[in-house]
């Protein structure tokens, strides 16, 4: 019974109450994933499980036996910032920095969803290829709250990253 966190296996908790979020923060000393509400209402705890973005606060860690979890700490390679992390710095996509890891993980998961053709609430044609317009990005990122009001910078950063990835 183990869960793979940023490529390394970790033991599942003995107490099934333990959320994936608390496992990361309290047991594995990976506090980059943030606890904003513990209610599934803010997105600060977003991590990627096998590439899908989920809320680690509502995830019981025991449910994720054998799954691959990527957290904010797993994005930078060889000490270099992930291009999206860099874009957040350049576009000032944060102020206090608390919602930031969740925003970044969420945006990476979002890009994969779009690639798979998953439409959104604002997609006019459900069958068409996904084009990540600004309105699409804003809708798809709406599960990640920001109280400092860095929304414009966040969307700018994600736009730039998506453009570069697509290019």
């Amino acid at each position: 019974m183990s869960i793979i966190i940023n490529g390394s296996p970790a033991a599942l908790p003995a107490d099934p109450r333990t959320s994936l979020l608390d496992l990361l923060r309290d047991t594995l000393s990976l506090p980059g994933t943030k606890k904003g509400c513990n209610q599934g209402a803010c997105g600060a705890c977003t991590v990627l499980v096998d590439g899908d973005r989920i809320l680690s606060c509502l995830a019981l860690a025991v449910q994720y036996d054998g799954r691959h979890v990527t957290t904010i700490e797993g994005l930078a390679e060889d000490g270099a910032l992930h291009p999206l992390q860099q874009a957040f710095v350049v576009h000032d996509g944060f102020q206090c920095g608390y919602c930031t890891p969740g925003q970044i993980c969420s945006a990476i998961g979002m890009a994969a969803e779009a690639k798979r053709g998953i439409p959104s609430h604002v997609s006019e044609d459900l069958s068409a290829d996904v084009v990540l317009t600004r309105a699409e990005l804003q809708e798809r990122m709406s599960g990640n709250l920001c109280r400092c009001g860095a929304h414009n910078g966040i969307i700018d950063a994600i736009s730039e990253y998506n453009t570069e990835v697509a290019a």
Binding site: I72, E73, Q85, Q86, F88, V89, D92, I104
Partner: peptide, 21 residues
């Protein structure tokens, strides 16, 4: 000027009060 604490924050490496070991 980009935030000097930016790289730390985007890596999730800034330790907030509930994260001090």
């Amino acid at each position: 000027v980009s935030r000097l604490d930016g790289p730390l924050k985007v890596r999730g490496a800034a330790r907030f009060a509930a994260e001090v070991p």
